[in-house]
Amino acid sequence: MRVVAIIPARYASTRFPGKPLVDIAGKSMIRRVYERVSAAAGIQEVWVATDDERIYNHVKSWNGQVMMTAVHHQSGTERCAELAGRLDPAPDIVVNVQGDEPFIQQAHLHALVACFNDQEVMIASLMKRILNPEELMSPHLPKVIVNQQNDALYFSRQPVPYLRDVPQSEWLAHHMYYKHVGIYAFRMHVLQELVRLPATPLEQAEKLEQLRWLEHGYRIRMAVTHAEQFAIDTPEDLQRCLERLDELEANM
């Protein structure tokens, strides 16, 4: 099984322009992600997919594998699909790693790839148990509910399920809630199908791309992870990262 990880990287982020190139203790964010993924067992190749020459030239400067992709892509999934489609030989599994995860845990990557030992798995992603009320109620943190096979039933920015006869302050004591950890892996042919799908009502309502796949009948296998995620979406996140750098690197 040939597994290729692709890191989509844009310069023109709305909340944090130039984010992939910011310095974190002597290394750029994109280089930290690349090196973390490259060290993971079970991943044969790592590529950066970008539409910006500054990112392209930066990755080339330390001999990373990088490819220019089209400027019109609306999502990292589309950018991954373009690059994967140009590889020869084609990968069996494509792992889409966010370019703002400089402390990505290898446990995340191992759990994702292991899902494909089941030949029926088309798409895999991760979930982590929610342990505090702030995460449960945050609309910025998507939640997921699954069936008995751990295939996703629904993703929402609201807490799901709603516990009808339980005070909201007690929900975590009465039900096991999970947040979605936004790393994906796809069988190659499925990834190419997904990027041709039209948008769907639930996706547009929640602004969650993965709902498009569910609405079109694709299954997403959810693996449970206990490893924490630390993404950098804003300059404030970067400052918190620098303040916790020793702790974050120790947990890698």
Score class of each variant (00 low, 15 high):
Met1Gln: 07
Arg2Asn: 12
Ala12Trp: 06
Ser13Trp: 05
Arg15Phe: 08
Pro17Met: 07
Pro20Val: 09
Pro20Lys: 04
Leu21His: 05
Asp23Ile: 05
Met29Leu: 15
Ile30Tyr: 04
Arg32Cys: 14
Glu35Phe: 13
Val37Met: 03
Ala39Ser: 15
Ile43Gly: 01
Ala49Phe: 03
Asp52Cys: 08
Tyr56Ala: 10
Lys60Trp: 06
Trp62Met: 11
Trp62Asn: 07
Thr69His: 06
Thr69Val: 15
Ala70His: 13
Ala70Ile: 09
Val71His: 14
Ser75Pro: 08
Gly85Lys: 01
Asp88Thr: 14
Pro89Cys: 13
Pro91Met: 00
Val94Lys: 01
Asn96Arg: 13
Leu109Phe: 04
Leu112Glu: 08
Gln119Thr: 12
Met127Arg: 13
Leu141Val: 07
Lys143Ala: 07
Ile145Lys: 12
Asp151Asn: 14
Pro159Thr: 04
Ser169Tyr: 13
Ser169Asp: 15
Ala173Pro: 09
His174Gly: 08
His174Lys: 14
Met176Glu: 15
Tyr178Trp: 08
Lys179Tyr: 00
Lys179Val: 02
His180Leu: 11
Gly182His: 08
Leu191Trp: 00
Glu193Gly: 06
Leu194Phe: 13
Pro198His: 14
Pro201Gln: 07
Glu209Phe: 12
Leu214Thr: 01
Tyr218Phe: 14
Ala227Cys: 04
Ala227Tyr: 05
Glu228Tyr: 09
Gln229His: 12
Phe230Gly: 06
Thr234Ile: 12
Asp237Leu: 06
Glu247Trp: 12
Glu247Ala: 11
Leu248Phe: 10
Met252Leu: 15
Met252Thr: 14
Met252Phe: 11
